[in-house]
Design a protein around this nucleic acid. Sequence first.
RNA 1: GGGGCGGUAGCUCAAUUGGUUAGAGUACCGGACUGUCGAUCCGGUGGUUGCGGGUUCGAGUCCCGUCCGCCUCGCCA
Length: 601
Amino acid sequence: MTTQTTTALRTHSCGVLRTSDVGAAVRLAGWVDSNREHGEGLVFIDLRDRAGLTQLVFELESTTSEMVDPARKLRGEDVIAVEGVVRERLGGKNPRLETGDIEVVVQKLTILNKAESLPMRPTDKEGLPGEETRLRHRHIDLRRPRMQQILRTRHRVGQIMRAFLDNRGFSEIETPILFKTTPEGARDFLVPSRHHPGMFYALPQSPQILKQILMISGMDRYFQIVKCFRDEDLRADRQPEFTQLDIEMSFIEQEDVIELMSELFREMWREILGVEVGDIPRMTYHEAMERFGSDRPDLRYGLELVDISDIAQKTDFKVFTGALEKGGVVKAIRVPGGAKLTRKITDGYAEFVKQFGAGGLPVTKIENGAFATGVARFVEPVQKELMERLDCEEGDLIAFGADTRAVACRSLGELRIRIARDMEMVPAHGEQWKFLWVVDFPLVAWNEDEKRWDSMHHPFTAPTAEDLEKLETDPGSVLANAYDIVLNGSELGGGSVRIHSSDVQKRVFRLLGLGEEEARMKFGFFLDCLRHGAPPHGGIALGLDRIIMHLCDTDNIRDVIAFPKTQSGMDAMAGAPSEADAKQLDELFIKSTWTGEKQPG
RNA sequence: GGGGCGGUAGCUCAAUUGGUUAGAGUACCGGACUGUCGAUCCGGUGGUUGCGGGUUCGAGUCCCGUCCGCCUCGCCA
């Protein structure tokens, strides 16, 4: 890290002094990390800033008791400045510190700011406070070296992205935060308009339409590191406001985006981790769903789903035959060494898959070369065939999913992840980086509740040229020019080639049940743009927060955001959201209907 | 909206089957100490057991409600 840290108050940071500096007169400033006081004659202070720790020595041999006595009273997080001389440590060196070979003998101490006793200590060592405390006192939590390292990495990643794209002719262009509903399909955050009573801006769920308009405007290559807003429930990797690297390019095909982004990921992993990512393989959406039961498969372990419908057909097991009669499938996962899983555990798995719509989880084990326990007697007749298909070995467990294709794949896919975790088959962080492009997504998916087709990606995604003719006749089979980048089972981003013809756009809107009038009201301005000369274009958006999570080895998105929100969307530090005062509301012609009672239904 | 886990000193945690005055470490305060490095040693302050109600001779512990945090399904690319 090259850093210019010299200021009026200091000559060096707390992380840079070495034996080569012995004899130098220095001034340092920072926070008191610890105080080791040995009476009126000798005090050690560890001084901390973002660069590291430096040991300060106050001793009567070198200075007066007017300097040593105040040092004895220093407490954690007091802010001080000192003047002194660097010398080699007298009492043994500290190999755990980069500055552990030297110490600074202090001649002058200035107390810049005493700290009151703290609700928490900013230490990475054991006994980290609960997350609620950390979020409430974020100013202290962010003093922890770990948090500083994460935010510093986040900054560097942003710089890498900017330099990478700048070198390739991209322009960073800002787009409005106060805008209009955008087509991602999540709930919008709304901002009331004072000039236009009763009307609202929507915060963008992404700058999707705007970046497409920039392409129509001839900007050719756009990017932005930008906040996006979605008013949906939170998860460990989801915040209501999150950051994307948003990209759009003109006169391109899918391949251009994939190649460019692959190179960006290689560069980020090389620069931050010193890891060579290499070529990033591709897999179709269909294959990902069939083999892994997920559109973001984790390729770091096996446990693949295998279709055994044809074999299951030959059994008298009603769970199998019933599913097949209804047009479903039977799939299986072989769990190597899974025979040691207890009944209690496999019952737990059965409960687990129920939340994804499965009726239950038939299992059996391979003991003494044959099926034993569970549904063994039902699958006994096809034992040889089944064991061959699944490559079974002694001590395996077989778990079955018999249901509609969607439910069987999804439930076994989720189970696969859970089993891998339980059986410790997931490599430790940094051991394997399994990047994957998932391609050939369907354009639309059937929404059973609403009885209509929904966009898989968003309504501006282009169907492949070959499938264009099936748009009206067989929409479910139409593939899209859409792609996702996946790493170790987590989706890092996705994009598509866009529709650049207003005719195709209208047909897709019609397919989505978006009437002429509704489409005109929501996106009419954009349809007009498409008619005025739109170049072929496409792009992608990467989830910056999730990328940082991988680079910094955390599974908590709040760790990579300086001021994140809690699961209920609150800012624990500032106490947002909060009530607005009556005057503000009057100006906006807003009146809350909140009665303190939850709405029924 | 549903399911799960949790909330005890500033912080991290303990408290047997429901049973005496709710403990420990750390932080903080006072004292001792000239080579420590998460200093050590001695002493001390510190509690509405999230909040409200109930059961009981007796509740940190059991029951109901509620708030907050985390995980998760739905939701959301």
